[in-house]
Design a binder for these strands. Structure first.
Length: 467
RNA sequence: GGCUGGGUAACAAAGUGGUUAUGUAAUGGAUUGCAAAUCCAUUGACCUCGGUUCGAUUCCGAGCCCAGCCUCCA
């Protein structure tokens, strides 16, 4: 039985869907004014793994996974202005780039990908309801604010109390808010900014209300899982709760799931610190599955330290899995057999709050078993079956999807020696080996090594891979 | 200042009141023309100080250190 750490209560809880056998999940996606960085990759991959596992448990058709796109906000407007570019062009470009990144990372598309600008009627209707219920008000400057004093249990998710928050806040001179903690739902338009018509005049929505409106529109006013990065916990998710529950009058989300940060040099990686690494930059150096392996090699809530050493570690681990699968003819889709000790341990790990590091350790045990029996029995059916199960289980984590030879031999750096050249040299070496010309054979091996190609001799001949 | 997490062997990373996590690296063996890969084996650990306990890395308390949130951020 799957258990998840619910950050609302802080406890590891049994996951019981609201509607028996059906799961609804919403994850805060990207604000599209730049390329996705490794921190984004972590959210994408973590919730991809969770959704894959939920689909495995409940069936593909019984899981609805929604990941939104924020395509209207201050930073987007600022960037468009800076680029002298139309807003739609800018967001369109970065949405396309994001889709490139997710596809390369093997992240399955969510069932729905709502965009804020496509949900203005829902956003406006929600604000209208909040005003009607007097949990929101329009201030003198035309902005509409959420009335914190009307919220029940504000600060519960982030475990903050309103007095502390208020003490720390700096009140601006011209503040029109009733309470400095009140946050904006609708901003009246400023010259040159994109705007939509509303009962409160032309303007645009605040960030928090977008997610409330889109999630409730897609999944209903209460749903199972809401995910996102830890940095969204406060104030974004806190505010979502306040708005959504203020609107519906009942509970909004049953399980809050937050993933930890990616760190770089022991510091949080973020746009505001400027120390981020784009996904597309990492993919110049490492294959997508290596990045994925790196991400899931630690628990989703722990901090994840981005470093070359850790990527290299992930790379060598993943390579050893692929090496073991070379030479086996395995179908792409394999039924998972879950009645053996490996599988039980694997699923026990995933059930335990998605403990992917332990799940990976089970895959290593399967790997060792494959190598061991392969050595004795070659390609006997039971060896193939074991290899197939390894591939199938890894597939649930989004790993071992590639063809092994392709994975091991394809070059990612431009200017690398071509596979044809390598094969030519290997042929010459085979000849030298036959003639027991070890000097020549070793020379060729050294030459290839200098080009980043590793040769391995086996009973069936020479195998090669790129280091 | 308030609030969250965390400190595990060379590195990465789980977990546990007493029994091998796991991977990389290292060492020895099998294998190989030599290597590599693979298999077998081995070394190496739980921040500090108290407390609870027959026994604590694991529970409790204090301290030190690290990261994060309290303002936009995945």
């Amino acid at each position: 039985m799957l258990k998840l750490r619910n950050t609302f209560t802080g406890d590891k809880e049994k996951f019981i869907p609201m509607i028996d056998g059906k799961v609804s999940m919403y994850v805060c996606g990207m604000t599209v004014y730049d390329y996705c960085h490794i921190g984004h990759a972590r959210v994408l991959v973590v919730f991809d793994v969770l959704s894959k596992y939920l689909r495995y448990i409940y069936g593909d058709e019984n899981v609805v996974y929604v990941r939104n796109i924020t395509d209207i906000d201050d930073k987007i407007i600022a960037r468009a202005l800076h680029n002298n570019e139309a807003l739609d062009d800018l967001t369109g470009r970065y949405i396309a780039a994001m889709h490139e990144d997710t596809e390369r990372l093997g992240v399955q598309d969510p069932d729905m990908e709502p965009r804020a600008t496509h949900h203005m009627p829902q956003i406006i209707a929600m604000i209208a309801t909040l005003i009607e219920k007097e949990v929101a008000y329009q201030a003198q400057n035309g902005d509409v604010y959420f009335r914190i004093s009307a919220a029940t249990a504000y600060g519960r998710l982030a475990r903050k109390n309103i007095d502390d928050l208020r003490a720390g806040i700096r009140v601006e001179v011209d503040d029109v808010k009733e309470n400095p903690l009140d946050f904006v739902l609708w901003k009246h338009t400023k010259l040159g900014e994109p705007s939509w018509n509303s009962p409160w005049g032309k303007g645009r929505p605040g960030w928090h209300i977008e997610c409330s409106a889109m999630s409730m529109h897609c999944l209903g006013d209460q749903f199972d899982i809401h995910g996102g990065g830890l940095d969204l916990k406060f104030p974004h998710h806190e505010n979502e709760i306040a708005q959504s529950e203020g609107c519906s009058g009942h509970k909004y989300v049953n399980y809050w799931v937050h993933n930890g940060f990616v760190r770089i040099d022991s510091e949080k990686m973020s746009k505001s610190l400027g120390n981020y690494v784009f996904i597309r930059d990492v993919l110049q150096e490492y294959k997508p599955e290596v990045v994925r392996y790196f991400i899931i090699s630690s628990h989703y809530q722990s901090p994840l330290n981005y470093s070359e050493a850790n990527l290299e570690n992930a790379k060598s681990s993943l390579f050893s899995f692929y090496r073991a699968l070379v030479g086996f003819e395995l179908p792409d889709s394999i039924q998972i057999e879950n009645d053996n000790k490996y599988s039980r341990a694997f699923f026990e790990a995933l059930d335990d709050d998605l403990n992917t590091p332990v799940a990976l350790s089970v895959l290593f045990e399967m790997l060792r078993e494959v190598n061991k029996i392969r050595h004795i029995k070659g390609s006997a059916p039971e060896v193939l079956a074991m290899a197939a199960q390894l591939k199938a289980h890894a597939g649930l984590l989004g790993l071992l999807k590639d063809d092994p030879v392709e994975f091991l031999q394809s070059a990612i750096r431009p200017g690398s020696i071509s596979s044809e050249e390598v094969n030519g040299m290997i042929e010459r070496r085979a000849l030298a080996k036959r003639e027991k010309n070890w000097e020549e054979s070793d020379h060729i091996r050294d030459c290839l090594a200098a080009q980043g190609v590793v040769l391995e001799d086996s009973h069936e001949g020479q195998h090669w891979r790129r280091a």
